[in-house]
């Protein structure tokens, strides 16, 4: 069972993680912004996460912590 934790305030909404996710379960928030004015990344289906860390590897801002 994998778990992702987002330091949401660091997210700049670049979307590189969304593109990197092999399961397609990351998306940028549609209706809200973080304190910096960016649409932060969200996990759409937590149960489907395999903890591969592809998202974290592509994140330029160390937003994502991955546990397995």
């Amino acid at each position: 069972m994998a778990k992702l934790t987002f330091k949401e305030e660091l997210c700049k909404g670049c979307g590189l993680c969304v593109n990197a996710c092999p399961k397609g379960i990351l998306a940028l928030a549609k209706n809200r912004l973080n304190g910096k004015g960016h649409a932060p990344v969200e996990l759409t289906d937590p149960d489907a996460c395999i903890g591969c860390a592809s998202c974290a590897i592509m994140c330029p801002d160390c937003v994502i912590k991955v546990e397995r």
Partner: peptide, 18 residues
């Protein structure tokens, strides 16, 4: 399995998105 390395400080990168 993945977290911010400790050789980085807590300062927030000023770089542009992406």
């Amino acid at each position: 399995v993945f977290d911010k390395p400790k050789s980085l400080t807590d300062a927030v990168f000023h770089y542009c998105p992406g």
